[in-house]
Design a protein around this nucleic acid. Sequence first.
DNA 1: AATGAAATTCATCACGTGTTGAAAAAGTTT
DNA 2: AAACTTTTTCAACACGTGATGAATTTCATT
Lengths: 219, 219
Amino acid sequence: MTEKSTKDKILDAAEAQFARHGFDGVSARDIARSASVDPALVNYHFGNKRAVFDAVMLRRAEVLNNERQQALDFVLRRHHPNPAPLDEIIDAFTHALLNRAQTGGQEWRDYFALLGQINNTPEFGGSIMTQFFDPLVHRFLDALRATLPEADEADLMWCYHFLSGALTLTFAATGRIDSLSNGLCKSTDFDEVHKRLVPFICAGFRSMCGPEVGPIQES
Amino acid sequence: MTEKSTKDKILDAAEAQFARHGFDGVSARDIARSASVDPALVNYHFGNKRAVFDAVMLRRAEVLNNERQQALDFVLRRHHPNPAPLDEIIDAFTHALLNRAQTGGQEWRDYFALLGQINNTPEFGGSIMTQFFDPLVHRFLDALRATLPEADEADLMWCYHFLSGALTLTFAATGRIDSLSNGLCKSTDFDEVHKRLVPFICAGFRSMCGPEVGPIQES
DNA sequence: AATGAAATTCATCACGTGTTGAAAAAGTTT
DNA sequence: AAACTTTTTCAACACGTGATGAATTTCATT
């Protein structure tokens, strides 16, 4: 392992702290202490605390958006000129995320936990999510519209909203389902979630935005 | 309108502030200022800041839990000895919440926004939600098991988890769907959500935990 | 080895934090 | 009216906050 730069040490520490305590629950000194770095370096490298937060959000968002974009393009191309099957679109939307959460280590889990908080927070939920993820989301919505041509636009948007809520609560991994299920289900077992999330969400979409069209029906 | 007690003024102000900025984003002085009250009164009446937070959470949780309990009992009794239909159970779970959010005024909307945050927060999501809502949730899970007798236990729990996520993102009302839909959908139009949430979630449950049994199938 | 830029340390600023205790005021009971 | 309790006010506490500027060290380039 090549040794980390100070900037990366700060980013990593900030990510972990923000994920656990939220933006306002963490001080610049907390971050510096957690990164084993002088407090002034936080401001030297990033300007201010909020800029650290934005940098944390941006870093992995770029990676994820590329992966998800490619997954969607792959699915669309494979079925072209027919619309892609619903479950493949939903899978392309979720797979990169849940796969990283499962196998990416604590750093990725921290990032997703942070995402889960952000999405449900008035100060950030509207702006940050929009800023980092809306362009990609619009592409997925286009794919969904092609597959569900009879879908009412508002229905489609609310279905996406439900998907977003189910997904981000999963990311938050608060441990609630662990206690609620007496340990049967584990918040951090994202593979188990993925197996169930895709069919659950697809069924929801179909019930409201169906019928689904595609190559299967036309053969 | 009878004039508010100091304690209620503090609770109301705290609720609004916590909903907007989270626990750590609000100081005891912020609350006092927003309540037009001397800062020392916050500690005089509640002991410390965290106790204010807990009091805010508890106040409306009791009201809601009673309403939802009654709604569930009513549905179960009406269909006894048959299991209640899935959609009626889900409606009993969500109706009191979304109805209050729609018609209860800003104070209730603040409370739900706070709930939406809490549920996705590691520090509170596990403990506070469990503390205030688990007994009721277990009753709903029992009703679901009766209606979906073939359901795998883990499947059922994850389906509930998806419901919880979709619901609490709705409560958070971050305005994201407003911008994502170019104003077609409004975060605060909880009636529109309710219309769609119940069938969406029911379809999800059925696809994974079905088949549903009940009086209709047996006639 | 000398030079200049980048990175790091340290002390410090003005202000906000949660909380407390003593004094004053308001309200209640005898 | 007197005695008592509850509530409110005000000042203060020790400490943490985000951020800055000057001095120092580290480093790469000549």
